[in-house]
Computed example of a mutant assay.
Amino acid sequence: MSRAPARRSNGDRANLYSEITDRIIAELEAGRLPWVQPWGTDRARTAVGLPRNAGSGRPYSGINVLILWGAVIERGYSGQGWLTFRQAKALGGSVRKGERGTTVVYADRFVPEDERRRALEKGEAPQAIPFLKRFTVFNTDQCSDLPEDVATTAPPVPEGLILPRAEALIAGTRVDFRIGGNRAFYNPMYDFVQVPPPQAFYETLNWHRTALHELGHASGHRTRLDRDLSGSFGSRKYAFEELVAEITAAFTCAALSIIPTVRHADYIASWADVLREDNRAIIRAASQASKAADWLMGCLPEHVVIPATTLDNEEVA
């Protein structure tokens, strides 16, 4: 016998409606239209389509489509498959520790037993009561050990886009390195790097610089070189760590005979602010970058031959 859903107060429903509406407003204020898939022609090639339950294959509908599209965009997930915690476990997998879920809703109507009796006694049609139920779901990117037909499948990288030496170095670091999504970042809390696929970049050499930049951040993890990675976005500490990672990428690119590039003007401006406030910052940043580059190059397997390269100081700066 199925149980009737627990009743929710009008206040609970109103709060849930407000949460959803506020989320959509925030998307609009950020200049995004949550009902237009911005990745349809995106070179990052996040999977196009409706979000679906990765276990049953059933697509989500209504407001849940907008909620889950928004989560894919905000967090750079590479797939449209979602599971509850229990569903992931039932499939033999698990949600990785510390992952934050996304709340979706189930809306329906039901007729309580006492209303059925009242309507029967009065000879009236029973009145159904609307209800909303919350569920927390996780993108398959957030799960481990799922079956192959359920797990997110990263877009295949065409042969030759990743230089063999760079690929060997990435593997040698043993950092959790993920290819997919539409953002490049290092997550220090969960210690993983994510970079869009090489074909997402206008120049594939920039994929290598970006990958090495994010690995530069990863080198500072407490289990490696133990740098201070606690700076919040926009802070001087954050800008300094960005400078370290960028110089690390330049050093490592040069060692791998890859022409290094730099980031856009906003980053350069933040670095300039750091240097104006502390005339020793560039020396400290370059020193830490050398240690990071040495650590990365030390991860390259010995059998991979690297041609000798030189890099003068002007080129680094």
Rank of each mutant, 00 (worst) to 15 (best):
G298H: 09
A6K: 15
V65R: 07
H213P: 08
A44E: 03
R109N: 05
A88V: 08
R116D: 11
I258M: 09
Q288T: 01
E203C: 03
A54S: 14
E27G: 00
C299S: 10
P188A: 02
H217D: 05
A200K: 07
D141I: 06
A168P: 00
P307S: 06
A90N: 15
I129N: 04
E167G: 09
K237I: 03
D228H: 02
L163P: 09
V304C: 04
D12S: 13
F192Q: 08
P38M: 04
G11T: 07
N182S: 14
T46M: 15
I283T: 04
V157Q: 08
I283F: 13
Y60Q: 01
A293Y: 06
M189N: 03
S94N: 05
L229K: 00
F131R: 11
A200V: 00
K291F: 00
L50F: 11
H303S: 10
L300I: 10
Y202M: 06
P112D: 03
K237S: 15
P147H: 04
C253I: 06
L83K: 04
Q194D: 07
D149H: 13
Q194G: 03
R109T: 04
W82N: 03
R32P: 01
G11Y: 13
W39E: 10
A200D: 06
S144H: 13
P126M: 05
A292Y: 07
R222E: 15
G70W: 09
D273S: 12
N64S: 01
